[in-house]
Every structure is written in C-alpha cells, then in structure tokens.
Write a protein that binds this DNA or RNA. Sequence first.
RNA 1: GGAGCGAUGGCCGAGAGGCUGAAGGCACCGGUUUGCUAAACCGGCAUACGGGUUUACGCCUGUAUCGAGGGUUCGAAUCCCUCUCGCUCCGCCA
Length: 424
Amino acid sequence: MHDIRVVRDEADALRAAMQRRGKLDTFGPRIDRAQLLDRERRAAIQAVEERKAARNVASQEVARLKKAKENADEFVARSRTLGDEIAEIETGLTATETELDAILLELPNMTAADVPAGDESANIVMRSWGTPRPVDGVKPHWEIGEALGLLDLPRGAKISGSGFVVYRGVGARLQRALMNFMLDLHTTEHGYSETWVPQFVNRASMTGTGQLPKFEEELYALRDDALYAVPTAEVPVTNLFAGEILDADRLPIALTAFSACFRREAGAAGKDTRGLLRLHQFEKVELVRFCTPETAMAQHELLTGHAEMVLQRLELPYRVLLLAAGDTGAASSKTYDLEVFAPGVGKWLEVSSCSNFGDFQARRASIRFRPTPNEKPQFVHTINGSGLAFARVFASLLEHHQTADGSVRVPEALRPYLGVDVIR
RNA sequence: GGAGCGAUGGCCGAGAGGCUGAAGGCACCGGUUUGCUAAACCGGCAUACGGGUUUACGCCUGUAUCGAGGGUUCGAAUCCCUCUCGCUCCGCCA
C-alpha cells in the first residue's frame, strides 16, 4: 500500500511506475480519482473538526452551567444541532474514505530504479550456475516417479482432484528430506530462526501481505470460518509482527518456515499442468527478512543467495532472472526469480521468487521499528523468497540426476537426509 | 459447545458519565551531583489524521484514539449491544 502522500505529491512518479508495469491504462484513472477523493476527504475532515471543536466548547458550557445550577438549554440545543451536522458530513466522509482506501489497497508498488520496464520479454538473466543437461533421451519426472514408485498422480486426483499429488515410499521420504535439508541449511549456515506457523490465516493477514483484496479467487477459503488456506508461508510469517514496533537493534530479523501452500490457480487451467509442474498444494521452505530501509537492497541480494545455495547443494543448474516491471508482483519493488532446469520437460522451472517489498507490506500490516529510543517509529522493509518450493525441485532432481539404467543419483548433500545414494 | 471474568500508553497499573490524553510506577532520553559505575534529585517522554508556519530540524493549533464496531447522551475509558482475543471452570477431543 502507498502512503496517500505519494498520490498527493508524487503522482507523476506513480504514473511513470504504472507505465513501466504496462498498467497505466488501468491505474492512471484511479490515481486521478484518488487525488479527487483525497481533496474531498480533507475538506470533509475540516468541516467535521470545526463542528466538533464547537460542540466540545458547547458541552463544556453545559457542564459549567449545570454545576452552577443554571439553565443550559441553549447550549444543549446548539450542541445537538452541531451533532446532527457532524453525523451528516461524516456519512459522506466515510464513503469517500472507503473508496479511497480501496484504490490505495489495489495500487501496485513502484518498482526499483534498476527494474527494466515492460513485460516478461524484458526480463534479464542476471547469472546462471551449472550446466543444463541435454534434453535428448531423458525422461520427464512423472515417468521416472511412476516407474520408481515415488509418485501416485492418479490417486492424488482420486482423493482430491487434479493438481493434488500423493508421494509414496522414497518419494514421500524425499519430501521430508528436502524439508529437513533446507531448514538445516538456512538455520545453521545462513542464520535464520526456525518458525512453524498456522496454515490458515484471517483476512487481516492476507491483506497485510497483499494477497487480498486482489487475489480473492486464488485462495482457498473455509466455509464456516473466516479463514483462508495460505498460498505461501510468507503470509503467516510476515504477519508475525503485524501491529508491532520492533527494536532497531533486533534488525535484521531472519525467519524460515516450512509450510504447505494452497493455490486455486483459477486462471491457469491447462498451462504446465503435467506431473508436478503446477499444483493446488505444494510444500516449501520460506525465507523472510525484516530490515531497515537502508539495508534492504543488500538484504535482498543476501536472501537470494541463500535460496541459490539450495540449488547449488542439490547440484541443479539454474539461472537468476531480474523480472521486468510488468512481470513483478504487485506488492514487490524488485524480484529475482530462480529457475531450475528440468531436462525431462525441457523447461526452466520457477522454484523461488525473491522479492524486496520495500515498505509496501509493512505499511499494510503496520510493522515498524524505532531507529533510536526517542525517534518516531518507521516502517521496516520486508524481503522474502522461497528457499525452495519442493515440487519443482523434486521434478528437476529426478530429471537432472536420472541415469541410463532408470535410477536417480542422490546429490551428496541430500544423502544423510534420504538415507540412500541412489533411488532405484 | 456451556458458564463466568477480563482487555487502559513501550511495559505494569489507577480510573466507575463532564475536573482524564489519561494518576502512580518501570523502562527510556536530557540534565545536576559524583574518582568510574551505581544511587539520588530535576525535567522530558503515545499515535494517527487535518490546518497554520518554517529553507530545514521543528513549532503552534484542531480532531480522534483506553481491544474492534455500533448505540444511548448536550457530553462516554466509564452505561447498553455485537464481535474479537485472553483467563478460569464444565463438556468434548487428537
């Protein structure tokens, strides 16, 4: 969410930012509308407060006269008239603020200066690691997974529907191994504090991180309780400090959490849906950092590196993309996507999206810090990314480490967790 | 699920229609004193949104905020209703 002052004083910059996202047609008129509403709002506030001040004076007079046992009817009447006027103006004010808030909640963040303008075709490959395996003669992960008894896609579909998978045997254990491997790496080598969070959250939390109001149809909601299944642990973990003022010397705070992630993928039917490529439920380990504005850029790079380390240890070739403005999530100011290569399907798969949100989420969720004991609190900056999402890593592992005899070589780092060197 | 009690500033806690943005304490900040530290003493110390003013740090001013929302009233931290959360007891249960 933007500060209303941005709409008021930096509208040109805001419009330019929407232009870079290719969203000026949508948001340009809303910015204009918000400026009008802001002016209306302030005029109404002045009118209301003028009358409230007068009413307070009249009420004081009533109190004084009553204490002196004198007649106060005149001031009671005046106060009542003012009260009626206040109620009327406030009705309009409420409507104005409701509409203004709705616009502010939907306006995307401004992207950082080094984010290229345009749509995904303008994404930039920043660096790559490892050598993608030739795609000839390699099998897709669903064939390997089925042959080795790791995956049971038909039964996942039977008990829940398409987009839900059942892992079995070593496949199930591989999920557990990925969880423990990633959590251990981030807690012991990267300094993250481990957390275990609820996987259903309320509306306020979803609004705090920016999933709502925009992505209502992407979320699974419960029928009888006002709760949503989390699409990422980013939501519960970031909201951990909602409404709080953190001590500056506690920053940066680095948290990691495992969770299942639930996504309806309402608009994505038929796209990359085979095997483990796009699921309604997948598991991942998430990385979240809270820091001061000055350190945010460096903290973003640091976190991205932590996510990359997972792929390096798993010996999987990947590349890092700087997303163009139009491909950057609405809440983010700058995002790096980590894409792992999956030779069986011949595709680069997104396994992490590392974003710097600036104060966009912190303002929504009211997460602040006090720079020094006597200074005013200011918003922290939030950064997060997957470290990593299991399903696509699982797919890439099977495809990249498959051998000619149909088995799968287990990368060194995973062996202590999986208990075998080769899956056969 | 049922019954009862509760929610006040960064923290603890008083407050029971107007004298309360809110006593007192702790923490914190500035100062005095003091070989150092500590103690003592003096002073300061909420947030948001408006308006005015300033090159600026600010300063002045209005309004609101005592879990959230609504109601009663000229006037609500205080009375009433709804909700949320917490605690205690009962029931149920992995």
